[in-house]
Nucleic acid binder design. Structure first.
Length: 299
DNA sequence: TTGTCACTTAAAGCACATTG
DNA sequence: CAATGTGCTTTAAGTGACAA
């Protein structure tokens, strides 16, 4: 199965389905296989904060060679047999160092359920080792996308759930109830402030105040803990709030904008389009949601 | 480790035009 | 007439360098 993928050569397939009438909370968006050598003229170098605002996740499994990963402040070598799990946007970078080669396959997913699960999976670390059966299964999914077998949104969603649930089964202790947050209390206070009032004007100054640190130091601390700066985190919460309201509340878009803390509907539309790739009206009409609907998705 | 300054960059807001 | 697009200005946020 692994060799099947390897035989595919350097390939990538993106799945783009027409707008749906139904909400899907897990989708496979693309998959591929690649075999890269370090090349200064064609660098392989991805920054987790520079891949757009729309949230998604990545599974990338190393077949041979070696890649480098910086995840927050920690550095890793990504070796054969290791699977890299990442979410975006987030403060990380993965790349090929001089002299290195990297053979891998990857799968990108999005949707609220996937994002929610990935947050838990990441507690196992950005690098994990799956059993041979699990790797074979992931390779088969990748292969199916490359071979054009994923021909409908339902199939894509079915596959996304299978991937997420398999990883959960293998990496998470389901019976264990987690009650404590890994966040320092100061950051937790700022985060609750944002989630407590998406529509209220909670600026970074107030978040810093709640944390007890100066604005400057708070900004650095928050980025280190959450992977994104405070304003960007707050924006994400508000955009998810907007998406949820657009689907569940019949009011005019400018009213929805105000409820999410945007005084200016023009600006709201501009931002919404950048975040979700379509205007609020199209989003509402389509009924499809490709990102995260719940604010829990980012916590 | 935390705070401050100086600076750059990005977000937010405003006015007006266009679209459907 | 609501929603969206465009171009501009103002304001807020992020960050490197450095001090305590």
């Amino acid at each position: 199965m692994l060799t099947d993928v390897a035989d595919a050569g350097s390939r990538a397939v993106s799945l783009a389905f027409p707008k749906q009438r139904y909400r899907l909370h897990a989708m496979v968006t693309s998959a591929g296989y690649d075999q890269r050598r370090h090349d200064p003229h064609r660098p392989y170098d991805w920054n987790g904060l520079r891949r757009g605002d729309a949230p998604f996740v990545l599974l990338q499994h190393t077949l041979s060679g070696r890649g480098r990963l910086r995840h927050g402040r920690s550095m890793h070598e990504v070796l054969p047999g290791q699977t890299m799990l990442l979410s975006f946007p987030h403060d990380h970078r993965y790349w090929l160092a001089p002299g290195d080669g990297w053979e891998f396959f990857w799968i990108c997913l999005n949707g609220s359920e996937v994002l929610r699960l990935w947050r838990q999976l990441l507690e196992a670390g950005p690098l994990v080792r799956l059993g041979a059966a699990g790797i074979d299964r992931m390779a088969a999914y990748c292969r199916a996308v490359l071979d054009g077998e994923v021909t409908s949104p339902a199939r894509s969603s079915q596959m996304a759930y299978s991937i997420a649930m398999h990883l959960a089964d293998e990496l998470l202790a389901w019976g264990e109830v987690r009650t404590s947050s890994k966040r320092p209390a100061a950051i937790e206070r700022a985060v609750s402030l944002v989630h407590g009032a998406a529509g209220a004007p909670v600026d970074v100054g107030r978040m810093a105040e709640a944390s007890g640190y100066s604005r400057y130091h708070f900004s650095r601390l928050f980025s280190a803990v959450e992977g994104v700066p405070p304003a960007r985190y707050r924006l994400r919460v508000r955009m998810e709030e907007a998406a949820r309201r657009l689907q569940t509340e019949p009011d005019p878009i400018k009213i929805i904008a105000q409820r999410c803390g945007f005084a200016d509907a023009n600006y709201f539309t501009k931002l919404f389009r950048r975040y979700y790739g379509m205007t609020p009206r199209d989003f509402r009409r389509s009924g499809m949601f490709a990102g995260s609907l719940s604010t829990q998705g980012v916590r």
